[in-house]
């Protein structure tokens, strides 16, 4: 049984995001109006050999804390699916 985890890593709101800023500028240049802000993050997809949802979540959380995110500047969110 394989469980899929999608980890979304984003910069914390008080951290300047130069890439998001550049995208925001580019969108404005292209004429896309009404975009209030842009934040760029990353998506990490994992396939886990795990059946227990809570156990999977616990594992992925540990991975995030240890490696996948830098909690000094980043937040993470975990989305699990079978």
């Amino acid at each position: 049984m394989i469980m899929k985890a999608r980890v979304t890593v984003t910069l914390k709101t008080d951290v300047l995001d130069p890439q998001g800023k550049a995208i925001h500028g580019a969108l404005a240049t292209l004429g896309f109006e009404g975009v209030d802000s842009v934040r760029q993050g990353k998506l990490i997809e994992l396939e886990l050999d795990e059946t227990d949802r809570d156990e999977a979540k616990r594992k992925v959380e540990a991975m995030c804390e240890k490696l996948l995110a830098n909690t000094v500047i980043e937040n993470y969110a975990i989305d699990l699916s079978n």
Partner: peptide, 8 residues
């Protein structure tokens, strides 16, 4: 932390 240079 060290982030991406401001001018990318």
């Amino acid at each position: 932390a060290l982030m991406r240079n401001a001018n990318l």
